[in-house]
Design a protein around this nucleic acid. Structure first.
Lengths: 240, 240
DNA sequence: CAGTGGACTACACAATCGTGTAGTCCGGCT
DNA sequence: AGCCGGACTACACGATTGTGTAGTCCACTG
């Protein structure tokens, strides 16, 4: 199906238009907030047709998941944006449409789609094996944690793209803003944020907390801690 | 009010318990998915009491926003996590409860709270002025974009904390997982991801796209681009 | 002791959600 | 021509949502 037309935005199948509208509205408003009626209106069809083509709202989400996944697999094993940043011509070939799918996937990760969890793991595994492949200037000590952090952070960039755009005064999803953000990312990825001494100091701080943890107080308060309190901490801050 | 008790998780005022439950459920499920009845049940009160204390769901969200903001301002100008990472003793003094508020704020940013937008800008401004203050090994070329990207990425780490935890096999919100993630972040922040040549190559690639942009085709398709298509790209990937 | 105000609950209401159903339109097949 | 299946719509349904209202309980004050 949908083999007739390849591009041509309005001449798509109604089913494809519904899927595209769902992709966009799910990404923009979240799964709960995006109603079937709003999706149908955005696609220019009746709400009943959504059900006719996709059974239920959850099935529509699944269809969006697998479609976005399929479209992103086409840009295979690029380890999110990071790995391809150094590849000239990467931008022009990729970002026109795939970024939209990445945005959807990133948003669906916080909305708790089941497919997105598997996708996250897949991207982490991909990034991990990219991290240990020796293409990085320095191979991380904990590649899995490194990869998980990197994927989550990169997803945050997409999820908060409108906030980032507002802060920059340019839409980071179109070409102009993308270039500015991309350059900033190159800056961020090519220069360390911490000096070697700072890093060693931080690691020592963690080690100190860790040893205190395995020692005495297991401190097993699980989550619903007061929240009120913890005021009398040292507020000696950054300076000094 | 609520000056009686300071800690003591169950002996809190009902209003405080509602706020805490809302903070948690909003962060976990999102603003739309978290119902007033679920919040009331989590707080152990009736749903009507929520309205009695906070007027409306939006007002409850505002209360959560300002409360989380107030609690985070107490950890003033630490420029998100990054700036304090090098500060020994930072972990032990901060992360027990504040992380929950950061998690809420991060989630409210994708849910579109009005206060969270202002908070994002505030954190960007803070990070920006921290970036230009010379505390970094190398001052970024575009501090604003640098700061915006950093804040968004750090927020992504919080928003996807459960995915990160699943990938790591440890809850990154408790002490043990936090240490592992923290060390990975130190690794990520203290080592560049791109070599100088790769960075230069990427910058050249961006410049090439930029010059092609200002030249001819303004390419003003605004958003509802097909999405189907863009298939015949070069898939020459990472290697080489 | 009467009264008063706030914390708190039970219940009802309108709106909106996802879903179900009946029915219309139209192109392709025998 | 006859018809038959899928695309598509209009409309109705329970369920759930946020919200509104009436009323109970209790601590405190005169």
């Amino acid at each position: 199906m949908a083999t007739r037309l390849e591009r041509a935005s309005e001449d798509l199948t109604a089913k494809a238009r519904i899927r595209d509208a769902a992709l966009r509205l799910f990404a923009e408003q979240g799964f709960e907030a995006a109603t079937i009626r709003a999706i149908a209106a955005a696609a220019g069809v009746s709400s009943g047709l959504v059900r006719h083509h996709f059974g239920s709202k959850e099935a529509l989400r699944d269809a969006c998941d697998s479609f976005a996944l399929e479209r992103m697999i086409a840009i295979k094993e690029q380890a999110w944006v990071v790995g391809r940043l150094a590849d000239p011509g990467f931008l022009a070939s990729v970002y026109p449409s795939v970024l939209e799918y990445q945005r959807y996937v990133a948003r669906s990760m916080v909305d708790g789609s089941s497919a997105s969890a598997a996708l996250f793991d897949q991207m982490v595994a991909l990034t991990e094996q990219w991290a240990v492949a020796g293409r990085l200037p320095t191979t991380p000590a904990d590649p899995r944690a490194f990869a998980a952090a990197l994927v989550a952070m990169q997803s945050g960039l997409l999820m908060l793209h409108d906030h980032v755009s507002r802060a920059l005064g340019a839409d980071v999803l179109d070409a102009a803003g993308q270039i500015r953000l991309g350059n900033a990312l190159v800056d961020l990825y090519s220069n360390p944020l911490l000096t070697a001494e700072q890093a060693a100091q931080a690691r020592a701080s963690y080690e100190q907390v860790r040893s205190r943890l395995v020692d005495g107080r297991a401190d097993g308060d699980s989550g619903n801690d007061s929240g009120i309190g913890s005021d009398s901490d040292s507020d000696s801050g950054i300076e000094g």
